[in-house]
């Protein structure tokens, strides 16, 4: 189902429109080099709670005894389970002793950039602020030159706003044209004044949103750029400076 959201324009009129995600890149499959057979990835069981290191040491008495047992046999191989497809398994929580929890408490731990714990408390769901049944994304009127915006914020998600009928075509076209003519991007947000972050589902990432519009003859392109990161330098540990790192 396409995602529908409500958005307001500069005249505080709102309408429900569709959000489209970017197209995915080229679809890649893998085949055997030898015979061209299609290959897929399977997630298989390697060890269980009965054949983990801790369980085996517990059963045999010491790491030395486990080492000796591994020379003499294969105590770590649970023949009925190893190599089985994990399949539709259920996610559970286990306690420090390895027992399945039937009642668990969920905490939220907040950590500072230097790794120190700042707070710890019960986790509370954060509700979505944007959606089909929620108040509109607000046109704040805060326009910023695109040249400045791209140097201040990192846009980690983008969605295209599309009309769903003739009326919403005019609505979105006019929005895109006004932004195109201004050559600026518009800060948008949730809440009555548009100051709240955009959250698209319960416990979803909070984003700041910037609308960018372009028109070409009788067609338009209206994109909501979403950011949760500023373009700022981070503290660099002496060694990390040259190590980089991938996503």
């Amino acid at each position: 189902m396409p995602r529908l959201v409500t958005i307001a324009d500069a005249k505080k009129r709102d309408a429900q429109i569709q959000l489209d995600s970017p197209k995915r890149g080229e679809t890649v499959r893998y085949v055997s080099k030898a015979n061209g057979a299609p290959i897929h990835l399977e997630r298989l069981i390697k060890t269980t709670d009965r054949s983990s290191y801790e369980a085996l040491v517990g059963r045999l008495g010491s790491p030395e005894a486990l080492g000796k047992a591994m020379i003499e046999g294969d105590p770590e191989v649970e023949i009925e389970q190893v190599g089985r497809r994990l399949g539709h398994a259920t996610r559970v929580h286990v306690g420090p002793g390895g027992q399945v929890l039937y009642a668990a408490r969920v905490l939220q731990v907040v950590t500072a950039p230097d790794g120190t714990e700042k707070s710890r408390g019960d986790f509370v769901d954060v509700e979505a602020t944007v959606g089909e049944e929620l108040p509109p994304i607000v046109w704040t009127g805060r326009l910023m030159p695109a040249n400045d915006v791209v140097r201040r914020f990192v846009f980690v998600r983008k969605v295209q706003l599309r009309h769903v009928n003739g009326l919403t075509f005019d609505f979105l076209y006019d929005m895109a044209k006004s932004l195109h003519d201004e050559k600026k991007m518009l800060l948008v947000g949730a809440g009555a004044k548009g100051q709240a972050p955009l959250i698209f589902q319960t416990n979803g990432s909070p984003f700041r949103g910037f609308l960018e519009g372009r028109v070409d003859g009788d067609s338009y392109r209206l994109v909501l750029h979403l950011s949760n990161l500023e373009l700022k330098r981070v503290a660099v540990a002496a060694k990390a400076a040259v190590e980089g790192g991938e996503s």
């Binding site: 893998y30 055997s32 057979a37 299609p38 290959i39 897929h40 990835l41 399977e42 997630r43 298989l44 069981i45 390697k46 060890t47 269980t48 709670d49 983990s52 649970e78 009925e80 389970q81 089985r84 994990l86 399949g87 539709h88 398994a89 259920t90 996610r91 559970v92 929580h93 286990v94 306690g95 420090p96 390895g98 399945v100 929890l101 668990a104």
Partner: peptide, 26 residues
């Protein structure tokens, strides 16, 4: 606490690091 997988038939509790991805054909 940590998370784990309980297989659909309930016969195995798979702790973190207890699975491996393998490329296989049909």
């Amino acid at each position: 606490c940590s998370s784990a997988w309980l297989t659909a038939d309930g016969s195995a509790l798979v702790l973190g690091g207890g699975t491996a991805h393998v490329n296989v054909d049909d």
